[in-house]
Structures are given as C-alpha cells and as structure tokens.
Amino acid sequence: MLRTLSRKQIKKEMKKNIVESIAVICACLCLLGCTNDESTPVGAQNLNLVFEDEFNGEAGATINTDNWNFEIGNGQNGWGNNELQYYTNRPENVALDGEGNMVITAIREQFQGFPFTSARITTKDKVEQQYGRFEARIKMPGGRGVWPAFWMLGSDIDEIPWPTVGEIDITELRGQEPNITIGSVHGPGYSGGNAISGSYVIENDRFDADFHEYAIEWTEDTIEYYLDGIRFNIITKDDVPQGAEWVFNERPFFMILNIAVGGNFVGFPVDSTPLPQTMVVDYVRIYSIED
C-alpha cells in the first residue's frame, strides 16, 4: 500500500501478478473442489481471540476511538503514491451503519482543494501485535481508480523509515480488476513495485459484490494468506531476494483500513468510475496462535 513505483516497476509488477494469477487459478480450481470437506481444515487450529471490533452501534455513530485513529488529509504527495483523495473523519466518509458494520465511503466532491474524499483509520499505538491471525470480513469497493486496502505497518514507523519497518498488505485490489485480491509484503529490497505478492482471482464473481473474509496467519519466518478460509499463498523468509532482510520477526504491527482514490498502483479514476464507493467492514479480529 505504501509504495512509490516507476512505470517500469508497475509493468513488472503487473506482469508478475498475471503470472501468479494464472498459477493461483490453477490452485483454486484444485482447492474449490474440497472447500466443503471439513475433514481437511487449513490454517492454524489453536487460535485465541485477543482483539475484535464488531462495529456494533447506531447508524452514523463514530468508530471506537479506543481502537482506531483517523488519518486526515492527503499526506505528502498523496501519501507517497500521488493519491487524489483527502481523508476526513466526517461521518460521510467513515461511520457505523447501524447494522453491525463500519463503512468507509469514497466520494467524488471538491474538498480542501482535492477532488475526492475518503477515510483511512489505523490502530497505531492502540492495537498492535506481533504474530497471529489478522482477519476482517469486508465488502470491498470497486471502480476504476479506486484502491481499497486492509494492511499493516510496523509499529515503530515513526523511528524506522519505510520500507525497513515492514509492511504486510492483507488485501488490496484495483477497482478496475474487482475479481482479483492481492496480498503482499514490503521490506528493504522488496518494496513498492518489487514487493512480494500473491493474488487470488474469483471466477464469475467480484469482491465488490459481496462480503469475503480476508486473513493472514503470521508466524516466525512465515505469512500465509487466506480468502474465505482458503489458503492461496505462503510467503516465507526464503522468498525475499538474495541479500535482503526478512523484517517480520522484529516488532508488532498495527492495522490500517482505507480507500484511496487514484495513485500509482491503481491509476486515476475517470468520469465513468462509479462513485461513491463503500468499503463495508463487518468485523476485524486478531487471534494469537498457540503452539
């Protein structure tokens, strides 16, 4: 999510994704045949719930600020990505919906000199954890140039610069490819367009049509990616480029939920981009994984 890409890098990354997508499709075809078979569970068994936000509350109410911070504005250079939105904490952009969900809404409107508004919330200094299962059930936004993400950064980002501090993207998608979810890790030597990524393609469906559960299970040296209980990618210490450092055994991470509009990763929205777009989050949970 936090990345600065050259054109070349974008091309490279796209190519990579396509290759991986093909691989993932093959994998999915195999997996889909056995998703209902409860005798072959995937993922850690000894989960211990340590944090959850179910987003219960009245429609229009603000989120629980014991758990969440608002990030306001456009950052520097559009949060480093030439993003076009201005993040606010207005209920128009982020609020509970009264039906047990938190809704982030990206709107096409002039605000503080920017052409779109949206919201970005983090658990920095409030909910941080090293290792465990991080999951959220989300109905994604879509539309060309819309870039939603559920992701994490290393807790001491204020002292240690990105990408050394580490970034784990549990899910992000490009609104013009609403059937592809992408999970990545960024570290020194493998950030931005060179991040280590895997993607999952759903056939005859799209992630902005309904809720899906996005999760990682993060243990020492390993991050496993899950969609609706299906493990579709495993990234390990061995996957980092030669000479690069695996930075995910050092510190706790905090979570971020946001919708960006425009930016290097996704391109700019156009007049026929459907807006407003909403990211509807049913819950966010963190489990510790017991041995």
Binding site: G142, G143, R144, G145, V146, R174, G175, Q176, E177, P178, N179, R206, D208, V270, S272, T273, P274
Partner: peptide, 11 residues
C-alpha cells in the same frame, strides 16, 4: 440503469 461493469466502469 447504470451498471458497474467487470472493468470497474459505469455503463
């Protein structure tokens, strides 16, 4: 009726 097509564009 406006539809959100598979390419994320309205038609």
């Amino acid at each position: 009726v406006d539809y959100n097509l598979p390419n994320g564009l309205l038609q």
